[in-house]
Amino acid sequence: MKRLCLGFIVSFLSATGYGQELTWDSFRAFGGGDGVRCQYDENNPDAANTYLDAFGPNATFVFDSFGIDLPRVFGGGKLDYEASCNIEAFVTIPQGHYIETLSQTILFSVKKGRGALGGVSTNGFLFQDQIPINQINLEFLPDERVDTDLADRSNTQIFDPIARALQCAATALGPLKTKFKFQMLAIGVRPLPFIEFVTNIDSGDFTFELQPTIRRCG
């Protein structure tokens, strides 16, 4: 009888609960460089052009206009343009768990004339900069014209045993508040200044998704 009751309770709990979940707490985005800078500060949300939609383990960063526009300049002027966006996303890993996998997805649009060089790359870390996150690199070469309304790139990373051990040690005594750090870099190089050209790299909408999965240690 006791076994039946216990079975019922365990069945009920496992059936109705999600188990432990990673939670996204807050984030900050700030940028620099020549292009359209990303910006989000919870103390000044009206000035934001970057948004986070986090629910359960899923996070979506939406950039209204992150990127660069290479100006159509005839003659002299600057050739290299760069826009950076730094994101810090604070998360809580439940006690006794580690992040097992992380899926990253970028959705982007690019319009680039022949002759101009451009690209976007991500560079991320987790857990006090000790755990590097796989980069996504987009590169658009000078000899091709790119006119992409919407495209995506993604990768899924399985963290190695060292990364797991680090996290398990840190979550052994309680939930761990830590952060993901990402820097995105958009680079554009326009052709030589003495050539008249009609080319540009237009910034468009840009989204960045993070979807971690967690697993119990041990």
Binding site: L107, S154, Q211
Partner: peptide, 8 residues
């Protein structure tokens, strides 16, 4: 999509 690869 549900994460990871998207269908565009």
């Amino acid at each position: 999509g549900f994460g990871g690869s998207m269908y565009t």
